Amino acid sequence: MFQCFARNAAGETQTHTQLVVTSVTSSFSLLPSDLTVTVGNSAVFTCETTGAPKPAVSWRRGSQLLASGTVQIPRFTLLESGGLLVEPIRMEDSGDYTCTAAGADTHINATATLTVWIRTFISVPPVDQRVIKGTTATLDCNATHDPRVNISFQWQRGAVPLQPSGGRVSILSGSLTISQTWSGDIGDYTCTVTSQAGNQSRSARLEVIELPHSPRSLSVSLNDSDSRSVLLSWVRPFDGNSPLLHYILELSEN
């Protein structure tokens, strides 16, 4: 509503009129942009428009209509803002997505590309191992990943990161090798693969077996009820991280 006033010393007069805008050319206020998403996640394309009447927004991939005011297929949702939600993402969702805004007398399009990565995961996890003291232990850790992304491996013993020392400990292609193992190497080891397309961790336990210690506090006494037998006892020794199978008793007669 517009009003016009005229004033002078004699007074004031006014008149008014109304302007009604019935049509404004459609345009994009926020264009969709290219996205890169990992399989299993969600993707949200933006597409905001202006115009009068309000433009009708629809989305297509190639020639396939995915979402509009009257059409919607599973996993593709037309948002109130005009954007498109794709959830969950599959490999076959890669491609060009076109947002179309249809106004009273115009049709405008904007296109963005969706790139989908395969999720990175550990395909060969480390497994529990028992090695003899002084030998070499190798904990494997291999990952399957999208060839377009880079991955890196990190090993931890408990909560402490392991750094290749160039000595006993080395990491090659994700696998951890510990040479000249000893009891101090016993523990839980975790392999973590990190990438732009996801992270994953898997753990395994390393046990180092060594010779059992000698029995302690050996004592012997005659059996009062049987002159041909003795009572022999000792303190159970450290088992070397492996169950004791049996004891060997020897008699020496002089």
Rank of each mutant, 00 (worst) to 15 (best):
T49I: 12
P164R: 11
E80H: 09
A112W: 01
S219F: 03
T70Q: 14
H213T: 15
Q154R: 15
L206W: 06
P125S: 13
G82S: 07
T25L: 13
H16W: 13
C99D: 07
S214W: 08
N41S: 15
T46F: 05
S29P: 02
A102D: 09
G198A: 05
Y97K: 04
Q18M: 11
A10W: 02
L30H: 00
T177Y: 01
N241P: 04
D140E: 12
E12V: 11
M91L: 15
G11S: 10
N223M: 11
D239L: 04
T98Q: 06
V37C: 08
A52K: 13
N142M: 01
F121R: 04
D128Q: 08
P55W: 00
S23T: 10
C47E: 00
T120R: 00
W234I: 06
M91S: 14
S123P: 08
V86Y: 02
L19M: 14
I122Y: 02
L231G: 10
T138G: 00
V230S: 14
I248G: 06
T194M: 10
F76W: 05
W155C: 01
S225D: 14
K133F: 09
T49N: 01
T135K: 07
S81Y: 08
T17Q: 12
L35R: 09
R202F: 08
R168N: 12
S170V: 09
T192C: 03
E80L: 11
V149E: 06
D140S: 14
V116Q: 01
D105M: 06
T136A: 11
G82N: 03
F153E: 02
G51N: 03
P237Y: 11
W234R: 07
N254F: 13
V116L: 07
N8T: 09
V169R: 08
Q200M: 13
T50E: 09
Y247F: 15
L35F: 05
S29Y: 03
N109W: 12
F2T: 13
L35D: 00
R216G: 12
L31A: 06
I178A: 01
I89F: 05
R61G: 04
D185S: 12
R168V: 08
T138N: 08
I73W: 08
D226T: 11
S217I: 00
N8Y: 00
I122F: 04
V127H: 10
T22P: 05
A56K: 01
T46S: 14
V44P: 04
A52W: 05
L85S: 07
L176A: 01
R157W: 10
V124M: 09
L85D: 02
R60G: 02
G184M: 08
A10E: 13
A197D: 02
R119W: 02
L176V: 05
S165L: 10
A143K: 09
A52C: 04
W155M: 01
F238C: 06
V230W: 11
T135W: 03
G158V: 09
P53W: 08
C191L: 05
I132W: 05
S68K: 04
Q14I: 03
Q163L: 15
L35N: 05
T136D: 10
I132Y: 00
S27E: 14
Q14H: 14
M1K: 14
G83T: 10
D34G: 04
A104T: 04
E250C: 03
S33L: 14
G83K: 07
G134N: 06
K54M: 11
T136P: 07
W234F: 15
S203V: 07
R236W: 12
D128G: 09
